[in-house]
Design a protein around this nucleic acid. Structure first.
Lengths: 141, 141
DNA sequence: ATGAAGTCAGAGTATTTTACTCGGATTTTG
DNA sequence: CAAAATCCGAGTAAAATACTCTGACTTCAT
């Protein structure tokens, strides 16, 4: 319904995997330690990212996760959709509620427009963008 | 934190008041009946809109609410801010959480950018826009 | 072949946020 | 002064979010 911590945590983990692109798999343990995310929660998150084809996992010793696509080919929208589902800025936009279908609802048209703008914007940003913006912010001390 | 039903209900009520601009005050009873919003809840909402200077109330018999500004001078952003506070698309953007201040947080910079875009867009839309979009949608049957 | 390091899968729980109620006071008009 | 309205503060119910737990399965090194 909104962008929850799942998406935030997922994005953090994906940043690490992006740095490690073409390198060794990274385990849940490493990821959760680096970003201070509760292990079992992150486990769930990585599973969902895998089910949506964003990462791939290797089992057993030395295993972990790797990006399945280039960082520049993974959009924020994909990530958020994988973890929080399609954005419904307002409750009444939630798929499954009749509100948006009803004739003469004064507000759903405008919310749909705003919602669509947001989705478009998220679709225009990729994991590479996130990395470079992050780099720019880092003040070398 | 997100756009809740309060903002949606508030916007609906404001649409009615916009139609009634320069007319008689509209009571909670009328508004809640027209939009099927629980009366005591809408009461709270109208109070908050008044506290933020978007509407004015008159007491007693024949009383109710009126817009305090022209519909074209009331932005969606104002309405949402009055009822749900500043938008924090992601939990970590909530004012009061340190996350956004921490050095080296990989995600908060991007969320801030997206959040700002959304706020800007909401600021660009007014109550008049909402009315005309609604009008356009109405399919005369 | 076995045990350690890892993921997989599903159900279950705690916390927080949202949505809404209640009761009584206050103001205005007929 | 009574009826019609808003005002105000506290409190409750429902829903969504943010997690945990348990046990299985896979892979690899020794």
């Amino acid at each position: 319904m909104k962008v929850t911590r799942k998406s935030d945590y997922g994005l953090r983990a994906l940043c690490t995997l992006a740095r490690q692109y073409n390198g060794d798999p990274v385990s849940i343990g490493q990821l959760s330690a680096e970003h201070k995310i509760p292990e079992p929660f992150l486990e769930k998150i990585m599973q969902e990212l895998r089910e949506h084809g964003l990462v791939e996992a290797t089992h057993g010793r030395g295993g972990g996760y790797l990006l399945k696509k280039r960082p520049s080919h993974i959009s924020l929208r994909e990530i958020v959709h994988a973890l929080d589902g399609p954005i419904a800025l307002v409750t009444c936009l939630d798929p499954g509620l009749k509100c948006s279908i009803e004739e003469g609802c004064p507000t759903s048209p405008i919310w749909e427009i705003v919602n669509e703008k947001l989705e478009e914007y998220l679709a225009s940003l990729t994991l590479s963008d996130v990395m470079s913006i992050q780099e720019r912010e880092k003040v070398p001390s």
